[in-house]
Simulated scan of single mutants.
Amino acid sequence: MDRPGFSACTRFCVIVVAVMLVAGCTASTHRGSLTPVQADVSEMLEEIHASGKPVGFEQQDVSALVSRYLPVGTPHADVLAAVRAHSGTRVIEDSPATLIVRNDTGKAMLDPDARSVVMTFTFDGNGRLAKVRAVQLKHQ
């Protein structure tokens, strides 16, 4: 029994399913790949500085905050590009397995609120971010 409009409905369903599959593939290929604009290091550092002020030799763990901006699975090149896009950051060590970055705010002798953020990024064998360790400390 042939129903009127059945073939049009079938075509519509096939098109919807195809669009959903293509959209799903496109979304999954970009997961974990951030551009420097998406991973705004300036915004991340502002949020870190607003989160609290270390006292004396205290080190505040800000790893979770950094991981929100540079999540696990991000390629090494994207992490490096994001931190280099910020003029106040210095790359201390850059190897295939580890990237250590430091950001100093203020001068210790001139600014009572001088602080440093030290971020250590560890990468897996495929060059993807595996672990983030970040601390904020009073700049001595």
Score class of each variant (00 low, 15 high):
Gly73Phe: 04
Gly88Cys: 05
His86Asn: 11
Asp111Ala: 11
Gly125Cys: 02
Cys9Ile: 01
His49Glu: 12
Arg3Glu: 05
Phe57Leu: 11
Arg84Gln: 15
Gln38Trp: 03
Glu46Phe: 02
Ser42Val: 00
Pro4Ala: 09
Val19Cys: 14
Arg128Cys: 01
Glu58Leu: 00
Val72Ala: 11
Cys9Val: 01
Val14His: 03
Tyr69His: 09
Asp124Glu: 13
Thr98Gly: 01
Val79Ser: 10
Ala85Ile: 05
Ser87Arg: 04
Gly127Thr: 03
Gln140Thr: 11
Thr98Trp: 04
Asp40Met: 05
Ala39Thr: 00
Asp2Ala: 08
Thr29Ser: 09
Met109His: 13
Val91Thr: 14
Ala23Cys: 12
Gly32Gln: 07
Ala82Ser: 15
Met44His: 03
Ala114Thr: 09
Gly5Ala: 07
Ile48Gln: 03
Arg11His: 08
Ile15Gly: 06
Leu137Gly: 02
Lys53Ala: 07
Val37Glu: 12
Phe6Val: 00
Arg31Lys: 15
Ser87Gln: 07
Asp40Ser: 13
Val37Pro: 01
Arg84His: 08
Val101Thr: 07
Ala85Pro: 08
Asp124Trp: 15
Thr89Ile: 00
Pro4Met: 10
Thr35Met: 10
Leu137Cys: 05
Arg31Asn: 09
Ser42Gly: 15
Val17Phe: 13
Phe6Leu: 14
Val135Gln: 07
Leu80Pro: 07
Gln38Lys: 13
Pro112Tyr: 06
Asp113Ala: 11
Ala130Cys: 03
Ala97Ser: 14
Arg3Asp: 06
Pro54Met: 02
Ala97Gln: 11
Asp78Asn: 14
Arg115Thr: 12
Glu47Asn: 09
Asp61Cys: 07
Phe57Ser: 14
Phe57Tyr: 08
Gly32Arg: 05
Val37Lys: 03
Gly125Val: 02
Met119Arg: 04
Leu99Tyr: 02
Phe12Val: 01
Ala114Asp: 05
Val101Leu: 06
Gly73Thr: 09
Leu129Trp: 04
Ser51Asp: 12
Lys53Trp: 04
Ser51Asn: 07
Ala8Asp: 12
Leu65Trp: 13
Ala23Leu: 13
Gly88Tyr: 00
Lys107Tyr: 11
Thr10Asp: 13
Val55Gly: 00
Ala108Gln: 10
Arg90Pro: 01
Gln60Phe: 03
Val22Cys: 06
Ala85Gly: 14
Val66Gln: 04
Ser67Val: 04
Val55Tyr: 00
His30Leu: 12
Val17Ile: 15
Val91Glu: 13
Ala64Met: 09
Asp94Met: 02
Thr120Met: 09
Pro36Tyr: 02
Met44Val: 01
Lys107Arg: 15
Leu110Tyr: 12
